Amino acid sequence: MTTRLNPYLNFRDRTREAMEFYHSVFGGELTMSTFAEMHASEDPAEQDKIMHSQLITDNGLTLMAADTPNSMDYTPGTNNFAVSLSGEDEGELRGYWDKLSDGGDVAMPLDKAPWGDFFGMCTDRFGIPWLVNIAGEQQTSA
């Protein structure tokens, strides 16, 4: 897998609706996981929220989105987007992380995530939020 650079949008309880709309516009394959499926929140009101969604089109477009947790600020136009870097090349992605986070603000250190990948969130020195995801070991069935 190559490293992908794509927008990551945040919504307040409208990710499913928005991503189904974008799917109708662009086609492709849409996947969604809830907070409950990912064991990402103890709050019963958040169980059906979308923790992560991804639309990959046949012509190579990628769009990701998630619902903002109730405990986090949500201000459309200010904090409802990020740029995502994802792939399997750990050295390349850690290098990007180190440079992007240098002089910026690390919201979540690049570390092992509940879904098995390495994941981190930072805002660079120019105020742009970044998400970095390094794919974990792929499971093979025996």
Rank of each mutant, 00 (worst) to 15 (best):
M1A: 15
N6L: 10
N10I: 03
E17C: 07
M19G: 10
M19L: 15
H23C: 06
S24I: 13
F26W: 03
E29N: 14
S33G: 05
F35I: 10
M38S: 07
D43S: 08
P44M: 15
A45E: 06
I50F: 11
H52F: 15
S53Y: 02
S53N: 05
D58Q: 03
G60Q: 05
L61Q: 04
L61W: 06
A65N: 03
D67A: 02
D67S: 03
M72H: 06
T75R: 11
P76Y: 15
F81R: 00
A82M: 08
A82Y: 03
V83Y: 01
S84Y: 01
S84P: 01
L85N: 02
L85D: 04
G87M: 13
E88N: 06
D89M: 12
E90Q: 13
E90A: 15
E90G: 15
G91Y: 07
L93A: 04
R94P: 00
R94H: 00
G95K: 10
D98S: 06
S101Q: 11
G103D: 03
L110H: 06
D111N: 07
A113P: 06
P114W: 11
G116F: 13
F119W: 06
C122A: 15
C122D: 01
T123D: 04
G127N: 12
G127Q: 12
P129S: 13
P129G: 10
P129M: 14
V132Y: 07
G136K: 08
Q139S: 08
Q139T: 04
T140A: 14
S141A: 14
S141D: 13
